[in-house]
Each structure stands twice: as C-alpha cells, then as structure tokens.
C-alpha cells in the first residue's frame, strides 16, 4: 500500500540550512526551497521521510496532504 502524500513543514528557527535533507531526498531535481531545504510548498508523493530522519537538528515535520478534490483550485 502506498503512503499518502505529505506536506513538509520546517521549523525555520532551528534550521541551520545545512542541506542534508536535500542531499538524502530521492525526489527529482527541483524539489527544494529557496533556503536549501526540501520543498515545503507542494506535496511529496514519496513520503519516505528520510529528510526528517537525517535532519541534524530534528526540525522537519509533516502533515498528510489534503486529498486533491478538497484542495483549492
């Protein structure tokens, strides 16, 4: 069973912009934020959560992405 897509949220106060989350991310090119982190503005359909696991300061969290039919269009 595939995992539901998630949207990541980053506690920017603790984030040290180290890029470890991007380095471990299996997404295609471009799944990044302007602050050298994984993207936080769109769902991640892989949801492996390796980025949360690698984060040296434990500052990445997620919520399950709302299903597409309820998303704003």
């Amino acid at each position: 069973m595939s995992k539901p897509p998630v949207i990541f949220s980053i506690g920017w106060n603790a984030c040290i912009n180290c890029g470890a989350c991007v380095a471990i991310c299996p997404q295609e090119a471009g799944f990044i934020s302007p602050f050298d982190t994984i993207a936080v503005d769109r769902p991640c359909d892989i949801a492996c959560l390796l980025c949360e696991q690698i984060c040296p300061v434990d500052t990445i969290d997620h919520v399950v992405a709302p299903p597409p039919e309820t998303a704003l269009t």
Partner: peptide, 26 residues
C-alpha cells in the same frame, strides 16, 4: 553543485545516497 546536486539529476544520473551512508553532522 555539492552534495545537494541538482545537476546530476538533470541528466538522470543515479545520485541517490543511502540513509545508512549519509552522516548528519553538527
């Protein structure tokens, strides 16, 4: 472009690193 390389991904190169081989450092 470093460990977070996007350029390798542009070309479809296998750049994925295993979680057991990337140390989180502080």
């Amino acid at each position: 472009d470093g460990l977070m390389s996007q350029v390798g991904k542009w070309a479809g190169l296998q750049t994925h690193i295993k979680i057991t081989e990337l140390a989180g450092c502080l």
